[in-house]
Design a protein around this nucleic acid. Sequence first.
DNA 1: ATAGTAAATGGACCATCGGTCAACTTGAGA
DNA 2: TCTCAAGTTGACCGATGGTCCATTTACTAT
Lengths: 209, 209
Amino acid sequence: MDRWSILSMGKNCRMERRERADAARNRQAILRAAEELLRRHPPEQVSVERVATAAGVGKGTVFHRFGSRTGLMRELMAERARELEQAVAEGPPPLGPGAEPEARLVAFLARVAELGARNGNLMAAHEHAVLTAKGERREDNPIYVSWHRHVSGLIAEGRPDVDAEEIAHMLLGTLHMEPIASQLRAGEHERLAAGFADLVKGLFRGAGG
Amino acid sequence: MDRWSILSMGKNCRMERRERADAARNRQAILRAAEELLRRHPPEQVSVERVATAAGVGKGTVFHRFGSRTGLMRELMAERARELEQAVAEGPPPLGPGAEPEARLVAFLARVAELGARNGNLMAAHEHAVLTAKGERREDNPIYVSWHRHVSGLIAEGRPDVDAEEIAHMLLGTLHMEPIASQLRAGEHERLAAGFADLVKGLFRGAGG
DNA sequence: ATAGTAAATGGACCATCGGTCAACTTGAGA
DNA sequence: TCTCAAGTTGACCGATGGTCCATTTACTAT
């Protein structure tokens, strides 16, 4: 018989088989090692090889798991963003649904700033990786896409007359600005949050232009 | 006699002697070659060696002249920024002195967007170079410093109650955001300028928060 | 159990990059 | 013309992201 005919699969039938146990273990080891290194060192000092060594695996394994340095950073960012994502979708106001757009937007941006403050090196590394990557565009980054959609949606609700998508890009772009990023790394996320609040308040009040 | 005693210098007395003619020629060749390459290729494809070859000089010469890749990019940016700088300092309103802060700010940001549109790859290259550089901070970039001072000064005039410096960083940060940068590269600087105008108008009208 | 197989592994290897350096050439002042 | 500081050069360096493939390992059907 031809074993592995697709039709003869048993109860474990799934189109893609589950990741092997050792692979899953290594994936975690790599993620945790990268996390730890980024907590203590600036991104340019965290090479893929160093991550691999710290995780106790070969460099090839990292690339096999994550495709590229960018892929690894993306995965780390995704982990951090998932919680926020959920709070936005179904958490209590003002972050979650129910509050006024202005309040939701200010709350969201404050949370993003806070997230940046707690993961400064990671955000910088992710940024740099995306920037360096060859065929990669920021628009392909699902986290960015979802943040942008949320922000531009809220702006459009409050100010249907402005270019909400553009302004959303502008507000989010702020996070990657070096002087601001270093503030965040130093823990001063309130200052950025206040800046967000001022801009958003002005934007929402300025309707009668 | 001991030639070159500092005290015995003749009419050509200057503390640093003029750049030699061949050196000046090469400096121009390198700048023009880099300019040309950046007009046609994304920054990561414009290596120092490629610039050197295109300019008809050795790689070492580029480093000798500009110190580093970052130095080269900075010089190119400085060339582009000088004109704007002067228009701001002594040109006619609304860009130059005389107009209301809001109008000046909107005009300035529109010009910056336009400059970005005409030199997209250069700005990206400069950005990337500064980001990659080791001991380098964006705060050390004199162009950025001067732009930031201008923008935050105007904001402070119109809204003495907000964190003008922070908001100035935020507005300028916009330029380096990838989705926006690619718009600029495509020539759509009006869209960014409109976004700037909306944010600034809101900010200046929102005083009675 | 066990055998067969796809998945996973690791580390030597590669191309490229920014940057350095020491030997060599050249322009310009005296 | 003569001298030497200034300029030039390209081989070389260390580091990095990424590739490759021979080898090992964890599943699964029997």
